[in-house]
């Protein structure tokens, strides 16, 4: 395949899909944009190598997303002593610009913290099913597990998020009432 054609098609794909991949990866990493950027860079580099195989099959996004998911799961499986400790929020970062708390007292950082509390595969199941709108079968294929596992993981994750965010919303509402 001529390099110029590969470059042209790949560049077009990156322009059209990169931000979408990065946003999804950011959810997968519970808001860690640096790790998400690393994952997307890895995925796109491998996609470039595989481009002649995947360019006509309309599976470029699925291919890239599979790499992102696998790379993320590999990352969290690495022994703890070899791993940097990622924290989605800077410990001494500035407070929110506005005291208003959207969506009934839940803001982005609370949701990211709730996502971070989920095990990585459970979080991946939620992101694949509810953010990327993949079917149970597609999600099972990407996560290399059974469809039953996907259903149970998604249900547990949803319940867990509900509990975590309900607590945050109640606390925020109480705090708001005291203002």
């Amino acid at each position: 395949m001529p390099r110029s054609l590969r470059d042209e098609e790949f560049s077009e794909f990156v322009r059209a899909r990169r931000v979408e991949l990065l946003r999804s990866a950011c959810l997968l990493t519970a808001g860690d944009t640096h790790l998400a950027e690393d994952l997307v860079q890895i995925a796109l580099a491998r996609l470039y190598v595989a481009w002649p195989r995947v360019r006509r099959s309309d599976t470029q996004v699925a291919y890239a997303w599979r790499i992102v998911v696998n790379a993320h799961i590999d990352e969290v499986r690495r022994p703890r002593w070899r791993r940097e400790r990622y924290v989605p929020e800077l410990p001494d970062g500035p407070g929110p610009a506005s005291p208003s708390i959207p969506l009934g007292g839940i803001d982005g950082s609370a949701i990211r913290a709730a996502l971070a509390a989920l095990p990585p595969r459970m979080r991946a199941a939620v992101v694949l099913r509810h953010w990327m709108d993949l079917s149970v079968g597609q999600t099972a294929d990407l996560l290399n597990c059974s469809e039953g596992t996907v259903k149970s993981q998604t249900a547990k994750a949803t319940a867990r998020l509900r509990d975590l965010l309900a607590g945050v919303g109640a606390a925020a509402t109480t705090e708001g009432n005291h203002r």
Partner: peptide
């Protein structure tokens, strides 16, 4: 859930579609 996930991205840098 999708709205909540969207909200998780709103204040992150570099994610403007």
């Amino acid at each position: 859930l999708k709205d909540l996930l969207e909200l998780a991205l709103t204040d992150r840098p570099g994610l403007d579609p």
